[in-house]
Design a protein around this nucleic acid. Structure first.
Lengths: 131, 131
DNA sequence: TTTGTGTTTAACCATCTGGTTAAATACAAA
DNA sequence: TTTGTATTTAACCAGATGGTTAAACACAAA
């Protein structure tokens, strides 16, 4: 719910290395060195990625001797998916065409600021999406 | 599916102004000025945000006289939600505890590199999540 | 043609990001 | 205590990001 949390989660997911780390952690917790192995990148770089993931709440780091085992914490993903979920109807079925209908119907509301004497045609092109 | 596309979509969603713009567009297409109105920010700043959203495929910009009406294109959100969806079981139910079980079961695999003579105890603490 | 409105582009700036190498830290093992 | 392994921290760097103001562009209307 918190916007900051959403910022952090989406930002964390925006990097392919971090997404790969999460995918690895979905198989089970493991160490930093193991997480780093598939990536052509220095350990400090991986450590920074883990810091980002941890601050976003997507992982937890433990302590076992000199190892810092990482564990996936998926709860914030639920928040993210819930936020995106509000758009589900927009990508399902023939919503795009329905949308055009709805747009046209509500076109009576003057969406534009200084629009008093304008033509009431579609916003762009004949019949389909805006190009 | 394309990782670049996912990068762009998640990065676009990581900004609260852009998420607010998408929420406004979910009600129907509108102009840049209308989109900018709720935000304490210059028009060029909004224009940049719209550029980010357009490059991520989340909006389309049309052309009607001097207006550039924006329309939500939700398809990329499906990709994002599908990617996150692979973790659904991780945040649902009592997966966390189940997870610990699975971890322990697969602990026979030597997860650690130079681990030949180590104790086979849990990675952290007695019984619960890593702190 | 001039004027006014909507929007983008250009140039600039501060901060964040994602990487590097070198050094420090934490601990186990010898 | 020394040595070796795992990891983080520090310092640095290039490029991206998110904002600004001023100027340019696109078009409608007078």
């Amino acid at each position: 719910m918190s916007p900051d949390r959403l910022n952090a989660v989406f930002a964390a997911l925006a990097d392919p290395t971090r997404r790969a780390i999460l995918e690895r952690l979905a198989e089970g917790m493991t160490t930093v060195t193991q997480l780093a192995a598939p990536h052509d990148m220095s350990l400090p770089a991986i450590s920074k990625h883990l810091g980002v993931l941890e601050r976003s709440g997507l992982i937890e780091r433990g302590r076992e001797a000199q190892w810092r085992p990482c564990r996936l914490k998926a709860a914030p993903l639920k928040e993210a998916v819930d936020w995106i979920g509000q758009y589900r109807r927009h990508w399902e079925e023939s919503f795009d065409r329905l949308d055009e209908y709805l747009q046209e119907l509500q076109a009576k509301k003057p969406v534009r600021k200084g629009a008093s004497r304008e033509k009431s045609r579609k916003l762009s092109g004949p019949g389909t999406a805006v190009r």
